[in-house]
Nucleic acid binder design. Structure first.
Length: 493
RNA sequence: GGCGGCGUAGCCAAGUGGCCUAAGGCGACGGUUUGCAAAACCGUUAUUCGGCGGUUCGAAUCCGCCCGCCGCCUCCA
Protein backbone atom coordinates (compact mmCIF):
# COMPACT_ATOMS: atom_id res chain seq x y z
CA UNK A 1 0.00 0.00 0.00
CA UNK A 2 1.55 3.24 -1.06
CA UNK A 3 0.70 6.84 -1.74
CA UNK A 4 -0.68 7.63 -5.17
CA UNK A 5 -0.91 11.19 -6.43
CA UNK A 6 -2.54 12.61 -9.53
CA UNK A 7 0.20 14.06 -11.69
CA UNK A 8 -1.05 16.81 -14.00
CA UNK A 9 1.92 16.16 -16.24
CA UNK A 10 0.80 12.63 -17.12
CA UNK A 11 -2.89 13.05 -16.29
CA UNK A 12 -2.86 9.87 -14.25
CA UNK A 13 -2.58 8.79 -10.65
CA UNK A 14 0.97 7.66 -10.10
CA UNK A 15 2.68 5.98 -7.23
CA UNK A 16 4.69 8.62 -5.40
CA UNK A 17 8.39 7.95 -5.13
CA UNK A 18 10.75 10.77 -4.20
CA UNK A 19 14.04 11.13 -6.06
CA UNK A 20 16.00 10.66 -2.84
CA UNK A 21 14.75 7.92 -0.57
CA UNK A 22 12.96 9.28 2.45
CA UNK A 23 13.27 12.93 1.49
CA UNK A 24 10.76 15.11 -0.34
CA UNK A 25 11.14 18.61 -1.72
CA UNK A 26 7.89 20.50 -2.33
CA UNK A 27 7.50 23.86 -3.99
CA UNK A 28 4.12 25.59 -3.95
CA UNK A 29 3.32 28.90 -5.65
CA UNK A 30 2.63 31.33 -2.85
CA UNK A 31 0.50 34.45 -2.76
CA UNK A 32 1.10 37.80 -4.39
CA UNK A 33 0.84 40.00 -1.34
CA UNK A 34 -1.24 42.97 -2.50
CA UNK A 35 -4.39 42.21 -0.48
CA UNK A 36 -5.74 40.07 2.33
CA UNK A 37 -5.94 36.34 1.69
CA UNK A 38 -9.33 35.01 0.61
CA UNK A 39 -11.18 31.70 0.51
CA UNK A 40 -9.34 30.69 -2.65
CA UNK A 41 -6.00 30.96 -0.90
CA UNK A 42 -7.41 28.88 1.93
CA UNK A 43 -8.35 25.94 -0.30
CA UNK A 44 -5.01 25.91 -2.02
CA UNK A 45 -2.79 26.21 1.02
CA UNK A 46 -4.85 23.93 3.24
CA UNK A 47 -4.67 21.28 0.51
CA UNK A 48 -0.91 21.46 0.25
CA UNK A 49 -0.59 21.71 4.01
CA UNK A 50 -2.38 18.38 4.29
CA UNK A 51 -0.08 16.93 1.63
CA UNK A 52 3.04 17.88 3.58
CA UNK A 53 1.47 16.79 6.86
CA UNK A 54 0.61 13.39 5.41
CA UNK A 55 4.05 12.92 3.88
CA UNK A 56 5.54 13.65 7.29
CA UNK A 57 3.08 11.25 8.90
CA UNK A 58 4.38 8.62 6.48
CA UNK A 59 7.87 9.32 7.74
CA UNK A 60 9.30 11.45 4.95
CA UNK A 61 11.70 14.25 5.69
CA UNK A 62 9.90 17.06 3.88
CA UNK A 63 11.26 20.43 2.84
CA UNK A 64 8.36 22.70 2.00
CA UNK A 65 9.10 25.90 0.09
CA UNK A 66 6.40 28.43 -0.62
CA UNK A 67 7.30 31.78 -2.09
CA UNK A 68 5.98 35.25 -1.37
CA UNK A 69 5.56 37.28 -4.55
CA UNK A 70 6.37 40.88 -3.76
CA UNK A 71 7.43 42.09 -7.17
CA UNK A 72 6.92 41.36 -10.83
CA UNK A 73 3.35 40.10 -10.86
CA UNK A 74 1.56 42.24 -13.41
CA UNK A 75 -2.07 43.16 -13.84
CA UNK A 76 -3.85 42.76 -17.18
CA UNK A 77 -1.88 41.37 -20.02
CA UNK A 78 0.97 39.20 -18.86
CA UNK A 79 3.67 41.54 -20.04
CA UNK A 80 2.03 44.91 -20.51
CA UNK A 81 0.15 45.70 -17.30
CA UNK A 82 1.36 47.32 -14.14
CA UNK A 83 2.95 45.61 -11.21
CA UNK A 84 0.18 44.54 -8.83
CA UNK A 85 2.13 45.49 -5.75
CA UNK A 86 3.03 48.89 -7.16
CA UNK A 87 -0.58 49.60 -8.13
CA UNK A 88 -1.93 48.68 -4.71
CA UNK A 89 0.84 50.66 -3.03
CA UNK A 90 -0.11 53.78 -4.93
CA UNK A 91 -3.71 53.34 -3.91
CA UNK A 92 -2.86 52.83 -0.25
CA UNK A 93 -0.15 55.50 -0.34
CA UNK A 94 2.53 53.16 0.95
CA UNK A 95 5.94 52.14 -0.23
CA UNK A 96 5.58 48.93 -2.25
CA UNK A 97 7.79 47.05 0.19
CA UNK A 98 5.74 48.32 3.14
CA UNK A 99 2.59 47.17 1.45
CA UNK A 100 4.08 43.76 0.69
CA UNK A 101 5.26 43.44 4.28
CA UNK A 102 1.83 44.38 5.63
CA UNK A 103 0.00 41.79 3.56
CA UNK A 104 2.66 39.16 4.11
CA UNK A 105 2.04 39.44 7.85
CA UNK A 106 -1.70 39.33 7.27
CA UNK A 107 -1.25 36.22 5.15
CA UNK A 108 0.73 34.36 7.80
CA UNK A 109 -1.80 35.38 10.43
CA UNK A 110 -4.63 33.83 8.42
CA UNK A 111 -2.68 30.70 7.55
CA UNK A 112 -1.75 30.24 11.21
CA UNK A 113 -5.43 30.51 12.09
CA UNK A 114 -6.21 27.83 9.51
CA UNK A 115 -3.60 25.69 11.26
CA UNK A 116 -1.39 25.48 8.19
CA UNK A 117 2.12 24.58 9.24
CA UNK A 118 4.48 27.30 8.09
CA UNK A 119 6.62 26.41 5.09
CA UNK A 120 10.23 25.62 5.94
CA UNK A 121 11.30 28.42 3.64
CA UNK A 122 9.19 31.43 2.56
CA UNK A 123 11.49 33.13 0.06
CA UNK A 124 10.64 36.58 -1.31
CA UNK A 125 10.96 37.31 -5.02
CA UNK A 126 12.62 40.65 -4.25
CA UNK A 127 15.28 38.86 -2.25
CA UNK A 128 16.35 36.80 -5.25
CA UNK A 129 16.96 39.41 -7.94
CA UNK A 130 20.58 38.40 -8.38
CA UNK A 131 19.66 34.77 -8.97
CA UNK A 132 16.94 35.80 -11.39
CA UNK A 133 19.34 37.91 -13.40
CA UNK A 134 21.73 34.96 -13.50
CA UNK A 135 19.03 32.71 -14.93
CA UNK A 136 18.18 35.28 -17.61
CA UNK A 137 21.86 35.43 -18.56
CA UNK A 138 22.01 31.66 -18.95
CA UNK A 139 18.88 31.63 -21.10
CA UNK A 140 20.36 34.37 -23.32
CA UNK A 141 23.64 32.47 -23.62
CA UNK A 142 21.87 29.27 -24.58
CA UNK A 143 19.79 31.08 -27.18
CA UNK A 144 16.40 30.61 -25.52
CA UNK A 145 15.90 34.33 -24.95
CA UNK A 146 16.38 37.63 -26.73
CA UNK A 147 16.79 41.23 -25.63
CA UNK A 148 14.72 44.11 -26.98
CA UNK A 149 14.89 47.69 -25.66
CA UNK A 150 16.13 46.76 -22.21
CA UNK A 151 13.64 43.90 -21.79
CA UNK A 152 14.35 40.21 -22.21
CA UNK A 153 11.82 37.72 -23.54
CA UNK A 154 11.76 33.95 -23.62
CA UNK A 155 11.59 32.60 -27.17
CA UNK A 156 8.89 29.96 -26.92
CA UNK A 157 9.55 28.64 -30.42
CA UNK A 158 12.95 27.40 -29.19
CA UNK A 159 11.45 25.22 -26.49
CA UNK A 160 9.83 22.15 -28.03
CA UNK A 161 7.98 20.98 -24.93
CA UNK A 162 6.09 24.22 -24.39
CA UNK A 163 2.47 23.29 -23.65
CA UNK A 164 3.16 19.79 -22.31
CA UNK A 165 1.68 20.53 -18.90
CA UNK A 166 -1.50 22.27 -19.96
CA UNK A 167 -2.06 20.25 -23.12
CA UNK A 168 -1.89 23.13 -25.54
CA UNK A 169 0.12 23.80 -28.61
CA UNK A 170 1.49 27.08 -29.79
CA UNK A 171 -0.57 27.15 -32.98
CA UNK A 172 -3.86 26.83 -31.09
CA UNK A 173 -2.88 29.55 -28.70
CA UNK A 174 -1.91 31.88 -31.46
CA UNK A 175 -5.27 31.34 -33.14
CA UNK A 176 -7.29 31.90 -30.00
CA UNK A 177 -5.24 34.73 -28.59
CA UNK A 178 -7.37 37.51 -27.21
CA UNK A 179 -4.52 39.78 -26.30
CA UNK A 180 -2.92 42.07 -28.78
CA UNK A 181 0.72 41.14 -29.07
CA UNK A 182 3.41 43.40 -27.72
CA UNK A 183 5.39 44.98 -30.56
CA UNK A 184 8.66 43.98 -28.86
CA UNK A 185 7.91 40.28 -28.92
CA UNK A 186 8.88 38.09 -31.82
CA UNK A 187 5.97 35.81 -31.09
CA UNK A 188 2.77 36.64 -29.18
CA UNK A 189 3.24 33.67 -26.85
CA UNK A 190 6.74 34.73 -25.82
CA UNK A 191 6.87 35.92 -22.22
CA UNK A 192 8.92 38.46 -20.31
CA UNK A 193 11.89 37.33 -18.26
CA UNK A 194 13.07 40.83 -17.46
CA UNK A 195 11.19 44.07 -17.92
CA UNK A 196 12.69 47.48 -18.47
CA UNK A 197 11.65 49.92 -15.74
CA UNK A 198 10.66 53.48 -16.48
CA UNK A 199 12.40 56.04 -14.25
CA UNK A 200 9.29 56.59 -12.06
CA UNK A 201 8.96 52.87 -11.34
CA UNK A 202 9.90 52.42 -7.67
CA UNK A 203 10.65 48.71 -7.74
CA UNK A 204 13.68 48.43 -9.99
CA UNK A 205 17.14 46.94 -9.96
CA UNK A 206 20.25 47.39 -12.07
CA UNK A 207 20.92 44.65 -14.61
CA UNK A 208 23.09 43.98 -17.65
CA UNK A 209 20.14 45.26 -19.73
CA UNK A 210 19.64 48.43 -17.73
CA UNK A 211 17.33 49.16 -14.79
CA UNK A 212 14.37 46.84 -14.62
CA UNK A 213 12.50 44.20 -12.71
CA UNK A 214 11.92 40.45 -13.11
CA UNK A 215 8.98 38.83 -14.87
CA UNK A 216 6.56 36.97 -12.68
CA UNK A 217 7.34 33.42 -13.80
CA UNK A 218 11.05 33.76 -13.20
CA UNK A 219 11.00 33.86 -9.40
CA UNK A 220 9.46 30.42 -8.95
CA UNK A 221 12.02 28.74 -11.19
CA UNK A 222 14.88 30.44 -9.42
CA UNK A 223 13.76 29.90 -5.85
CA UNK A 224 12.71 26.29 -6.42
CA UNK A 225 16.10 25.57 -7.92
CA UNK A 226 18.02 27.42 -5.23
CA UNK A 227 16.40 25.64 -2.29
CA UNK A 228 15.34 22.28 -3.72
CA UNK A 229 17.65 21.58 -6.64
CA UNK A 230 17.28 21.46 -10.40
CA UNK A 231 14.66 18.72 -10.27
CA UNK A 232 12.13 18.98 -7.50
CA UNK A 233 9.82 16.20 -6.35
CA UNK A 234 6.51 18.01 -6.15
CA UNK A 235 5.39 21.32 -7.55
CA UNK A 236 1.96 22.48 -6.41
CA UNK A 237 -0.30 25.35 -7.24
CA UNK A 238 -3.76 26.45 -8.26
CA UNK A 239 -5.30 25.09 -11.43
CA UNK A 240 -5.57 28.58 -12.88
CA UNK A 241 -1.81 28.85 -12.77
CA UNK A 242 -1.27 25.73 -14.83
CA UNK A 243 -1.23 27.98 -17.85
CA UNK A 244 0.63 30.14 -18.43
CA UNK A 245 2.56 30.40 -15.16
CA UNK A 246 3.63 26.79 -14.64
CA UNK A 247 4.15 26.21 -18.33
CA UNK A 248 6.57 29.13 -18.36
CA UNK A 249 8.34 27.89 -15.25
CA UNK A 250 8.95 24.57 -16.98
CA UNK A 251 10.21 26.27 -20.13
CA UNK A 252 12.69 28.51 -18.31
CA UNK A 253 13.98 25.89 -15.93
CA UNK A 254 14.31 23.02 -18.36
CA UNK A 255 15.81 25.21 -21.06
CA UNK A 256 18.45 26.39 -18.60
CA UNK A 257 19.16 23.11 -16.82
CA UNK A 258 18.44 20.44 -19.40
CA UNK A 259 16.74 18.27 -16.79
CA UNK A 260 13.07 17.89 -15.78
CA UNK A 261 11.93 20.71 -13.49
CA UNK A 262 9.36 18.88 -11.37
CA UNK A 263 8.56 15.17 -11.17
CA UNK A 264 5.00 15.54 -9.93
CA UNK A 265 2.75 18.50 -10.68
CA UNK A 266 -0.24 18.85 -8.39
CA UNK A 267 -3.05 21.30 -9.03
CA UNK A 268 -5.91 22.12 -6.73
CA UNK A 269 -9.27 23.17 -8.12
CA UNK A 270 -10.95 26.52 -7.75
CA UNK A 271 -13.34 28.05 -5.29
CA UNK A 272 -16.72 29.51 -6.08
CA UNK A 273 -18.99 31.45 -3.75
CA UNK A 274 -22.73 30.78 -4.00
CA UNK A 275 -22.07 28.98 -7.25
CA UNK A 276 -20.17 31.73 -8.97
CA UNK A 277 -16.56 32.56 -9.47
CA UNK A 278 -15.35 34.77 -6.68
CA UNK A 279 -14.77 38.27 -7.94
CA UNK A 280 -14.63 41.75 -6.55
CA UNK A 281 -17.31 43.00 -8.95
CA UNK A 282 -19.77 40.22 -8.04
CA UNK A 283 -19.79 41.22 -4.39
CA UNK A 284 -19.03 37.62 -3.41
CA UNK A 285 -15.36 38.19 -2.73
CA UNK A 286 -14.81 36.94 0.82
CA UNK A 287 -11.51 37.31 2.64
CA UNK A 288 -10.54 34.94 5.41
CA UNK A 289 -10.69 37.73 7.96
CA UNK A 290 -14.28 38.39 6.91
CA UNK A 291 -15.18 34.71 7.18
CA UNK A 292 -13.61 34.44 10.64
CA UNK A 293 -15.46 37.52 11.86
CA UNK A 294 -18.69 37.03 9.91
CA UNK A 295 -18.43 40.53 8.49
CA UNK A 296 -19.72 39.94 5.00
CA UNK A 297 -23.25 40.35 3.74
CA UNK A 298 -23.27 36.80 2.38
CA UNK A 299 -22.52 35.35 5.81
CA UNK A 300 -25.03 35.06 8.65
CA UNK A 301 -22.45 34.49 11.37
CA UNK A 302 -18.75 34.17 12.09
CA UNK A 303 -17.03 30.86 11.44
CA UNK A 304 -14.13 29.19 13.21
CA UNK A 305 -11.00 29.07 11.08
CA UNK A 306 -10.87 25.34 11.64
CA UNK A 307 -14.48 24.98 10.47
CA UNK A 308 -13.39 26.64 7.23
CA UNK A 309 -10.53 24.17 7.10
CA UNK A 310 -12.91 21.28 7.71
CA UNK A 311 -15.20 22.42 4.90
CA UNK A 312 -12.21 22.46 2.57
CA UNK A 313 -11.21 18.94 3.60
CA UNK A 314 -14.79 17.71 3.22
CA UNK A 315 -14.28 17.66 -0.53
CA UNK A 316 -11.39 16.58 -2.71
CA UNK A 317 -8.63 19.03 -3.54
CA UNK A 318 -9.12 18.45 -7.27
CA UNK A 319 -12.85 19.18 -7.10
CA UNK A 320 -14.16 22.69 -7.18
CA UNK A 321 -15.48 23.90 -3.84
CA UNK A 322 -18.50 26.11 -3.50
CA UNK A 323 -18.50 28.23 -0.36
CA UNK A 324 -21.91 29.21 0.90
CA UNK A 325 -23.25 30.23 4.25
CA UNK A 326 -25.16 26.93 4.47
CA UNK A 327 -22.06 24.86 3.71
CA UNK A 328 -20.02 26.79 6.26
CA UNK A 329 -22.78 26.41 8.82
CA UNK A 330 -22.79 22.63 8.34
CA UNK A 331 -19.01 22.49 8.62
CA UNK A 332 -19.12 24.54 11.82
CA UNK A 333 -21.63 22.14 13.42
CA UNK A 334 -19.57 19.13 12.42
CA UNK A 335 -16.38 20.75 13.64
CA UNK A 336 -17.92 21.48 17.03
CA UNK A 337 -19.15 17.91 17.31
CA UNK A 338 -15.63 16.59 16.82
CA UNK A 339 -14.14 19.17 19.17
CA UNK A 340 -16.57 18.45 22.02
CA UNK A 341 -15.93 14.73 21.79
CA UNK A 342 -12.16 15.13 21.75
CA UNK A 343 -12.31 17.42 24.78
CA UNK A 344 -14.45 14.91 26.67
CA UNK A 345 -12.15 12.03 25.73
CA UNK A 346 -9.10 13.94 26.94
CA UNK A 347 -10.76 14.74 30.23
CA UNK A 348 -11.43 11.05 30.82
CA UNK A 349 -7.87 10.14 29.76
CA UNK A 350 -6.38 12.38 32.45
CA UNK A 351 -6.78 10.05 35.41
CA UNK A 352 -3.95 7.67 34.76
CA UNK A 353 -3.79 4.21 36.24
CA UNK A 354 -1.98 1.01 35.48
CA UNK A 355 -4.69 -0.62 33.39
CA UNK A 356 -4.20 -1.58 29.80
CA UNK A 357 -6.28 -0.18 27.00
CA UNK A 358 -9.23 -2.36 25.99
CA UNK A 359 -8.01 -4.64 23.22
CA UNK A 360 -11.35 -4.71 21.46
CA UNK A 361 -11.20 -0.96 21.18
CA UNK A 362 -7.58 -0.77 20.10
CA UNK A 363 -8.37 -3.28 17.38
CA UNK A 364 -11.20 -1.10 16.16
CA UNK A 365 -8.93 1.91 16.26
CA UNK A 366 -6.35 0.05 14.20
CA UNK A 367 -8.98 -0.73 11.57
CA UNK A 368 -10.00 2.91 11.45
CA UNK A 369 -6.40 3.99 11.05
CA UNK A 370 -6.05 1.60 8.14
CA UNK A 371 -9.18 2.92 6.47
CA UNK A 372 -7.86 6.44 6.94
CA UNK A 373 -4.53 5.59 5.34
CA UNK A 374 -6.13 3.80 2.40
CA UNK A 375 -8.19 6.92 1.73
CA UNK A 376 -5.25 9.28 2.04
CA UNK A 377 -3.07 7.05 -0.12
CA UNK A 378 -5.64 7.39 -2.90
CA UNK A 379 -4.60 10.86 -4.03
CA UNK A 380 -5.42 12.38 -0.64
CA UNK A 381 -9.09 11.49 -0.32
CA UNK A 382 -9.68 13.78 2.65
CA UNK A 383 -13.43 13.38 2.35
CA UNK A 384 -13.23 9.72 3.32
CA UNK A 385 -10.43 10.46 5.80
CA UNK A 386 -12.71 12.93 7.51
CA UNK A 387 -15.50 10.37 7.63
CA UNK A 388 -13.11 8.12 9.57
CA UNK A 389 -12.72 10.86 12.17
CA UNK A 390 -16.49 10.98 12.47
CA UNK A 391 -16.57 7.22 12.93
CA UNK A 392 -14.10 7.70 15.75
CA UNK A 393 -16.38 10.34 17.24
CA UNK A 394 -19.26 7.89 17.31
CA UNK A 395 -17.05 5.20 18.85
CA UNK A 396 -15.75 7.63 21.47
CA UNK A 397 -19.18 8.95 22.36
CA UNK A 398 -20.37 5.41 22.87
CA UNK A 399 -17.53 4.84 25.32
CA UNK A 400 -18.20 8.12 27.06
CA UNK A 401 -21.79 7.08 27.63
CA UNK A 402 -20.75 3.79 29.27
CA UNK A 403 -19.15 3.55 32.71
CA UNK A 404 -16.49 0.87 32.38
CA UNK A 405 -14.00 2.41 30.03
CA UNK A 406 -10.52 2.90 31.42
CA UNK A 407 -8.47 6.06 31.21
CA UNK A 408 -5.92 4.10 29.19
CA UNK A 409 -8.54 3.23 26.59
CA UNK A 410 -9.52 6.88 26.32
CA UNK A 411 -5.85 7.70 26.02
CA UNK A 412 -5.58 5.33 23.07
CA UNK A 413 -8.59 6.98 21.45
CA UNK A 414 -7.11 10.43 22.02
CA UNK A 415 -3.82 9.26 20.55
CA UNK A 416 -5.46 8.35 17.26
CA UNK A 417 -7.58 11.50 17.28
CA UNK A 418 -4.40 13.52 17.70
CA UNK A 419 -2.56 11.70 14.94
CA UNK A 420 -5.25 11.51 12.27
CA UNK A 421 -7.43 14.51 13.04
CA UNK A 422 -4.58 16.53 14.50
CA UNK A 423 -1.22 15.79 12.86
CA UNK A 424 -2.59 14.93 9.41
CA UNK A 425 -5.86 16.80 8.90
CA UNK A 426 -5.11 19.63 11.30
CA UNK A 427 -8.68 20.04 12.53
CA UNK A 428 -8.05 18.80 16.06
CA UNK A 429 -5.93 21.04 18.24
CA UNK A 430 -3.29 19.88 20.67
CA UNK A 431 -4.97 21.90 23.38
CA UNK A 432 -8.22 23.75 23.71
CA UNK A 433 -8.93 26.84 25.72
CA UNK A 434 -12.22 28.67 25.89
CA UNK A 435 -10.49 31.99 26.38
CA UNK A 436 -7.00 33.13 25.61
CA UNK A 437 -6.26 35.17 28.72
CA UNK A 438 -5.69 33.08 31.82
CA UNK A 439 -7.04 35.52 34.38
CA UNK A 440 -10.12 36.10 32.23
CA UNK A 441 -10.78 32.39 32.24
CA UNK A 442 -10.68 32.26 36.02
CA UNK A 443 -13.06 35.16 36.39
CA UNK A 444 -15.56 33.82 33.90
CA UNK A 445 -15.41 30.36 35.35
CA UNK A 446 -15.99 31.66 38.84
CA UNK A 447 -19.03 33.65 37.75
CA UNK A 448 -20.50 30.89 35.66
CA UNK A 449 -19.91 28.10 38.15
CA UNK A 450 -21.58 30.27 40.81
CA UNK A 451 -24.68 30.58 38.70
CA UNK A 452 -24.62 26.88 37.93
CA UNK A 453 -24.46 26.09 41.63
CA UNK A 454 -27.36 28.40 42.33
CA UNK A 455 -29.36 26.72 39.61
CA UNK A 456 -28.65 23.26 40.99
CA UNK A 457 -29.80 24.42 44.41
CA UNK A 458 -33.05 25.58 42.84
CA UNK A 459 -33.37 22.27 41.04
CA UNK A 460 -32.91 20.32 44.25
CA UNK A 461 -35.70 22.41 45.74
CA UNK A 462 -37.78 21.69 42.61
CA UNK A 463 -37.90 25.40 41.89
CA UNK A 464 -37.72 24.89 38.16
CA UNK A 465 -38.94 28.38 37.34
CA UNK A 466 -35.74 29.77 38.84
CA UNK A 467 -33.49 27.05 37.38
CA UNK A 468 -34.89 27.57 33.89
CA UNK A 469 -34.46 31.31 34.25
CA UNK A 470 -30.78 30.91 35.08
CA UNK A 471 -30.22 28.59 32.14
CA UNK A 472 -31.98 31.07 29.89
CA UNK A 473 -29.78 33.93 31.05
CA UNK A 474 -26.60 31.93 30.47
CA UNK A 475 -27.98 30.73 27.16
CA UNK A 476 -28.48 34.25 25.95
CA UNK A 477 -24.79 34.84 26.70
CA UNK A 478 -23.90 31.90 24.49
CA UNK A 479 -23.26 29.50 27.38
CA UNK A 480 -24.86 26.09 27.13
CA UNK A 481 -25.52 23.96 30.21
CA UNK A 482 -25.52 20.20 30.13
CA UNK A 483 -26.86 18.18 33.04
CA UNK A 484 -25.09 14.87 33.18
CA UNK A 485 -25.18 12.01 35.69
CA UNK A 486 -21.99 13.26 37.33
CA UNK A 487 -22.95 16.91 37.46
CA UNK A 488 -23.61 19.95 35.33
CA UNK A 489 -21.08 21.14 32.78
CA UNK A 490 -21.07 24.23 30.63
CA UNK A 491 -19.52 25.29 27.38
CA UNK A 492 -19.57 28.16 24.96
CA UNK A 493 -21.86 27.75 22.00
C1' G B 1 -14.00 29.93 -31.28
C1' G B 2 -10.20 26.33 -28.76
C1' C B 3 -9.19 23.22 -24.28
C1' G B 4 -10.83 20.95 -19.69
C1' G B 5 -14.15 19.70 -15.70
C1' C B 6 -18.80 18.85 -13.35
C1' G B 7 -24.25 17.34 -12.65
C1' U B 8 -25.22 11.61 -6.66
C1' A B 9 -30.94 12.72 -1.04
C1' G B 10 -33.58 19.42 1.45
C1' C B 11 -28.01 21.11 1.55
C1' C B 12 -22.43 19.76 1.41
C1' A B 13 -20.01 15.38 -0.35
C1' A B 14 -17.35 10.20 -1.31
C1' G B 15 -17.81 6.29 -4.63
C1' U B 16 -15.99 5.85 -11.36
C1' G B 17 -17.88 -1.69 -14.28
C1' G B 18 -20.29 -6.68 -9.75
C1' C B 19 -18.40 -5.94 -2.17
C1' C B 20 -23.53 0.08 -4.24
C1' U B 21 -30.89 -2.42 -2.72
C1' A B 22 -24.70 4.31 -2.98
C1' A B 23 -19.71 6.39 2.73
C1' G B 24 -19.59 10.56 5.93
C1' G B 25 -21.34 15.48 7.54
C1' C B 26 -25.35 19.22 8.07
C1' G B 27 -30.60 19.63 8.42
C1' A B 28 -35.40 17.33 9.43
C1' C B 29 -38.42 13.67 11.87
C1' G B 30 -39.29 9.50 15.54
C1' G B 31 -37.27 6.86 19.92
C1' U B 32 -33.90 6.24 24.48
C1' U B 33 -32.23 9.62 28.29
C1' U B 34 -33.84 14.29 31.05
C1' G B 35 -38.14 17.81 35.92
C1' C B 36 -38.02 20.27 31.02
C1' A B 37 -33.80 20.92 27.98
C1' A B 38 -28.90 20.48 25.82
C1' A B 39 -25.46 16.91 24.40
C1' A B 40 -25.04 11.86 23.31
C1' C B 41 -26.91 7.22 21.52
C1' C B 42 -30.48 4.26 18.30
C1' G B 43 -33.63 4.61 14.02
C1' U B 44 -35.99 7.00 9.54
C1' U B 45 -34.78 10.42 5.50
C1' A B 46 -31.64 8.40 -2.84
C1' U B 47 -34.70 0.78 -5.22
C1' U B 48 -31.49 5.46 -7.16
C1' C B 49 -27.00 8.51 -9.23
C1' G B 50 -29.27 15.54 -14.96
C1' G B 51 -32.37 13.35 -19.47
C1' C B 52 -32.74 9.82 -23.50
C1' G B 53 -30.58 5.82 -26.07
C1' G B 54 -26.55 2.07 -26.50
C1' U B 55 -22.45 -1.59 -24.94
C1' U B 56 -22.43 -5.58 -21.19
C1' C B 57 -24.56 -11.50 -17.92
C1' G B 58 -24.14 -6.87 -14.96
C1' A B 59 -23.42 0.62 -15.20
C1' A B 60 -23.92 6.02 -10.76
C1' U B 61 -19.43 4.09 -12.98
C1' C B 62 -17.98 2.71 -20.32
C1' C B 63 -19.98 4.95 -25.32
C1' G B 64 -23.34 8.45 -28.12
C1' C B 65 -26.70 12.44 -28.21
C1' C B 66 -29.27 16.21 -25.54
C1' C B 67 -30.05 19.63 -21.28
C1' G B 68 -27.84 22.46 -17.31
C1' C B 69 -23.59 24.47 -14.58
C1' C B 70 -18.42 25.84 -14.02
C1' G B 71 -13.28 26.81 -15.11
C1' C B 72 -8.97 27.93 -18.32
C1' C B 73 -7.37 30.30 -22.96
C1' U B 74 -5.76 37.96 -19.88
C1' C B 75 -4.11 38.92 -13.69
C1' C B 76 -6.00 35.56 -10.03
C1' A B 77 -4.77 30.33 -5.05
Amino acid sequence: MSLKLYNSLTRTKEEFKPAKKGRVGIYVCGPTVYGHAHLGHAKSYVSFDVLTRYLRYLGYDVTYVQNITDVGHLTDDADEGEDKIATAAKKEKKHPMALAEFYTRSYFEDMDALNCIRPDISPRASGHIIEQIELVKILLEKGFAYEVNGSVYFDVSKFKDYGKLSGRNIEEMRAGARVKPSPDKRNPVDFALWKKAEPNHIMQWPSPWGPGYPGWHLECSVMAMKYLGKTIDIHGGGLENQFPHHECEIAQSEAANGVPFARYWLHNNMVTVDGQKMGKSLNNFITLKQAFSGSHERLTKSYSPLAVRQLILNSHYRSPLDFSDAALFAAQSGYEKITETVKAVRKRAETTGKDKADEKITEQLEQLREKFEVAMNDDLNTSVALSVVFEMVRLANGLLGGANTTAETFSAVDDLFSKLGGDVLGIIKGEYGNLTNASDIQRYELAISGLVELRNKARREKNFAISDEIRKILGSAGIVLEDKPDGTTWRFR
